[in-house]
Deep mutational scan, measured.
Amino acid sequence: FIDQHRAALIARVTNVEWLLDALYGKVLTDEQYQAVRAEPTNPSKMRKLFSFTPAWNWTCKDLLLQALRESQSYLVEDLER
């Protein structure tokens, strides 16, 4: 899901800070967390977050999807259609 809908997630996720907090310490290191937060816009934050995903396994991507479902369920539901 995460890889399949990358472009839509970059464009449409609005609550990136919540995602970062949910992933911090589980998937994201402090350095990665700070790097994403330093980006000026939500799309650039999501691009930076996605720059780390090639090194993630399915469990990490599932944690991101779970966080998306909790914070932006309407968006996930729309993309699952």
Score class of each variant (00 low, 15 high):
N42T: 09
F52G: 00
V13C: 14
T29D: 05
S73M: 10
V27Y: 05
R37H: 11
Q4T: 15
D21S: 09
P54R: 14
L49A: 01
P40K: 12
P43K: 13
T41V: 04
Y74V: 14
G25N: 05
S51L: 00
L64K: 01
D30I: 10
Y74R: 14
K26S: 13
T14I: 06
R37S: 13
E80P: 07
L75D: 02
L79C: 06
V13A: 13
M46L: 10
E31A: 11
R69P: 03
C60G: 15
L9P: 04
D3A: 03
L19G: 02
M46Q: 04
D78L: 12
P40G: 08
K48F: 06
R69S: 06
T59D: 14
N42V: 05
L75F: 05
P54E: 15
W18L: 14
A67W: 07
P54H: 11
W18G: 15
L79E: 03
E39G: 04
Q72E: 15
R37F: 07
N57T: 13
S73V: 07
L20P: 06
L64D: 07
V76E: 02
T59F: 14
Y24R: 15
L65R: 09
R6K: 14
T59L: 12
R12P: 00
D78C: 12
R12L: 00
V76T: 06
Y24H: 14
L20D: 07
Q34I: 02
A55V: 08
Y74S: 15
Y24K: 15
A67F: 09
Y74G: 15
D30Y: 10
E31P: 03
T14V: 08
Y24W: 10
L68T: 00
A7G: 12
V13H: 01
N42R: 06
D62N: 11
R47G: 05
N42F: 09
L23A: 03
Q66V: 07
P40R: 12
H5Y: 10
D30H: 15
R12C: 09
A67C: 05
V36L: 02
N42Q: 07
L65V: 13
Q34T: 10
L23N: 00
F52C: 00
A22K: 15
S73K: 10
N42A: 12
L23V: 05
D30G: 06
A55D: 13
Y24L: 13
W18T: 14
V16K: 09
Q32T: 07
T41L: 02
L28V: 03
L23Y: 06
A8G: 06
A7D: 14
S51C: 08
W58V: 15
T53H: 08
L64G: 04
Q4P: 00
N15S: 07
Y74E: 15
W56N: 02
R37V: 12
A22G: 08
R12K: 11
N57S: 14
R12D: 04
Q66G: 09
L65D: 06
L9R: 01
T53M: 14
Y74P: 13
T53W: 10
L20G: 01
L20R: 01
S71V: 08
A8M: 09
F52S: 00
K48N: 02
L64A: 09
V36G: 04
E39H: 03
T53R: 07
D62A: 13
L79W: 00
V13W: 01
L75A: 04
D3F: 03
